[in-house]
């Protein structure tokens, strides 16, 4: 097999020499110095390392780098285009959705996949879309608000009296 692999990362083409046991996370952080993709558990359970591969959300810690041959990868570094922040990024800042920020790149990319497929999601759809991204700081409320805001929607009005329905 040819040793060099071509991968498109953030709309740029890379020719790379990869080891079989390198994960995409290793490639991004160590070989390419793209440290925006975070490492929180390395076993697929926290979502901090989320990237987008061919339009689908993926955990880079559980993806073999060689698997990405010929694919298009979007990381947090590629979320802003032409120097302009993505509305999700703008709204995250605006709504106070960022505290320590370690989970932020991961859920932003999960939310991007959501909005790319469903431009006006409900609150429930937003909650599901980011449920694979653990955040220990925010309690998720402002993250959810910010995603709805980026989609041009606001939080649903509170349930009528006596019916404070669960948000599930």
């Amino acid at each position: 097999m040819d040793k060099t692999v071509r991968i498109n990362i953030n709309r740029e083409s890379y020719e790379l020499e990869l080891e079989p046991n390198q994960t995409l996370l290793d490639l991004l952080r160590e070989q390419l110095g793209m440290t925006g993709t975070k490492k929180g558990c390395e076993i697929g359970a926290c979502g901090a390392c989320t990237v987008i591969i061919d339009g689908e959300p993926a955990l880079s810690c559980m993806t073999l780098a060689l698997r990405c041959r010929g694919k298009e990868v979007i990381t947090i570094e590629g979320m802003a285009e032409n120097g302009r922040l993505h509305p999700l990024q703008e709204m995250a800042i605006e709504h106070g959705a960022v505290q320590c920020g370690y989970c932020t790149p991961g859920w932003l990319l999960s939310a991007k996949v959501l909005l790319d497929n469903n431009p006006s999601p409900t609150l429930d759809e937003v909650r599901s879309a980011i449920s694979g991204n653990i955040c220990r700081c925010t309690g998720y409320q402002k993250i959810e608000e910010s995603i709805l805001a980026a989609a041009g929607r606001s939080l649903p009005a509170p349930a009528p009296e006596g019916e404070s329905s669960p948000r599930v």
Binding site: I76, M79, L85, E94, V98, L108
Partner: peptide, 13 residues
């Protein structure tokens, strides 16, 4: 706006 948020959403923090 928090000063650190901009870097954090870009992945440059």
């Amino acid at each position: 706006q928090r000063a650190d948020a901009r870097d954090k959403v870009r992945g440059s923090a």
